[in-house]
């Protein structure tokens, strides 16, 4: 067990090492990063000076070592726009994005769990078909259109919610629905098919044969087992929501990480872009590791390879 956790930990560190290489390479995609720093029309001498000042005249391996040295200390350099530490700017925005992702996940589960259960129990009914059609639509709906559509209906036509910003719970409703729709649809489908499978198993038949009330059979025996695949992917879903909130934040002017990152990309503020991409990737790797370890505890049958 300890060996497995140790191996997974090492693996995660090696992945983060790869992530740091890509994040570093990102800036050199355009060729000369100093052109991102200098205003148009800067003379050759001034460009050379800037290059020296930022250490961009050194060989790439040396620059990379300096970069990764900074990363391990949490230093991504200063924002080119306001001279504040890039990592600080990113961490400052993380809570808003976490709040949005958590709300999206809550809405997804609140809707998906009852619909998934009812669809499985009333298999083949009108309710089941309606639920599956909605889930199929939800999975095919691009976030940017759903966001625009919700604004059209609930802001323009029926003014119930604000179109953007982050004032009070009302401003959280539309972005959370937008971001959570895909997860809602997918969780509904996964839960339904898992539950259908479990309901056909021997121990469920045994429980029924013993005369256990239907409610108890469904809740105690079937649901608990069919939730395992749902629960084990929750952490990864959350990571996906964090990364996926980029567009939702853009539509609803939500002051989170995604909006900061997109703004920084447009402004070519590369230290902030690097910090944002690295932080989201680190959160993803961390949640992935946590899921794997949790899974071993939840399911002792899993092979430790």
């Amino acid at each position: 067990m300890t060996g497995y956790i140790g191996r997974r930990l090492l693996q995660s560190v090696s992945v983060l090492f790869g992530v740091s290489m890509v994040v570093f390479a990102l800036v050199h995609l355009t060729g000369d990063p100093v052109r991102l720093l200098a205003p148009i029309g800067t003379s050759h001498e001034e460009l050379a000076q800037l290059r020296r000042a930022h250490g961009l005249d050194r060989p790439l391996p040396e620059q990379y070592l300096k970069f990764i040295g900074g990363v391990t200390r949490g230093d991504f350099g200063k924002s080119l726009r306001n001279q504040q530490p890039a990592l600080g700017l990113v961490v400052e925005r993380l809570p808003a994005t976490l709040r949005l992702a958590a709300a999206a996940m809550a809405i997804a589960l609140i809707v998906a769990v009852p619909i998934g259960i009812l669809s499985a129990l009333r298999r083949g009914s009108i309710f089941d078909h309606a639920g599956m059609v909605i889930a199929l639509l939800g999975q095919s709906m691009p976030v940017f259109w759903l966001g625009v559509l919700l604004i059209l209906v609930f802001v323009v036509l029926i003014p119930l919610f604000p179109a953007g910003g982050s004032q009070g719970w009302q401003s959280l409703v539309l972005p959370a629905i937008t971001l959570g729709m895909y997860n809602m649809a997918r969780t509904t489908r996964v839960l339904r098919s898992e539950l259908l499978e479990v309901l056909g198993q021997d121990y469920v038949r045994t429980a029924r044969a013993k005369g256990a009330p239907e409610m108890r059979v469904v809740l105690r025996h079937a649901l608990r087992n069919s939730l395992i695949p749902v629960v084990t992917v929750l952490a990864l879903d959350l990571a996906a929501l964090l990364a996926g909130s980029v567009i939702t934040e853009q539509i609803f002017a939500w002051p989170g990480l995604g909006r900061l990152a997109v703004g920084a990309i447009y402004a070519r503020d590369y230290p902030v872009v690097q910090a944002a991409v690295f932080v989201v990737a680190t959160v993803y790797v961390g949640l992935n590791l946590a899921t794997d370890i949790l899974y071993v505890f939840l399911n002792p049958q899993v092979r430790l390879t």
Partner: peptide, 15 residues
């Protein structure tokens, strides 16, 4: 491990 859309935006913005 990369947030795909963020990486895509960054790459297209730079390229």
């Amino acid at each position: 491990a990369f947030p795909f859309l963020l990486l895509a935006i960054a790459v297209v913005a730079f390229l």
